[in-house]
Amino acid sequence: MSGQMNLTLKVWRQKKENQKGQFVTYKANNISDDMSFLEMLDVVNEEITRKGEDPIYFDHDCREGICGMCSLVINGRPHGPKYGTTTCQLHMRSFHDGQTIVIEPWRAAAFPVLKDLAVDRTAFDRIQQAGGYVNVNTGGVPDANTIPIPKRIADEAFESATCIGCGACVAACKNASAMLFVSAKVSQFALLPQGQTERYERAQAMVDQMDAEGFGNCTNTGACEAECPVGIKLTNIARLNREYFTAKLFRQEDIHN
């Protein structure tokens, strides 16, 4: 029999972008410790809806920890108090009866609040569109595994490619820097033969877009790596730096629009 708990929530409520928001206190009663954090919010929202009020708006999709849609800064930490997990995979057993939980949206100029706890993360999409792609020739379907790739390189590229683009790195960083995200996206292509065609244009274009979106500058605190739900490593950031400086200092090229 799982335990039941009663909690006090302080939730950021904001009607729309550019409006003033404030914290509103809610009671979450009879919460099972087997619930996920989002299920707990669902229970609270049902109560709010029954009262005829506007439910708490928050992002979620797969609830399996793989889509990168859920967010929330919970008691000062993105995706809550556990390391290596998303909010949907966070369970209420990580909290205790009577606890007060402060829930805030990602805070960054580049991630404006849309409503309550949901932020606009299309800045990440625009960074991806600036260079996070590979060109392929049309024609017949190439045989799988025709290009030999050393296992260690493939593994490293896969590690970088696990980034789900949730934005926890930005939320955790004291400077709201997007370096971990951008470095993961640049790395996965820079490592593989398929990504060589646009390699140096990509690093420049994605860094330019990152700066244009208004993200902060990396100060290597390592907060992003610690809070990343899928364990993207700081070595990616060093690789992005290498890619960018190599491009700028030794292989300056124009960027396609």
Binding site: K10, W12, F23, V73, N75, G76, R77, V102, E104, R107, A108, A109, A110, K174, N175, A176, S177, G214, F215, G216, N217, T219
Partner: peptide, 13 residues
């Protein structure tokens, strides 16, 4: 960096 986060967290751990 300050401009990149105009609204501070209420709690920041």
């Amino acid at each position: 960096n300050k401009k990149a986060r105009p609204v501070q967290y209420n709690q920041y751990d």
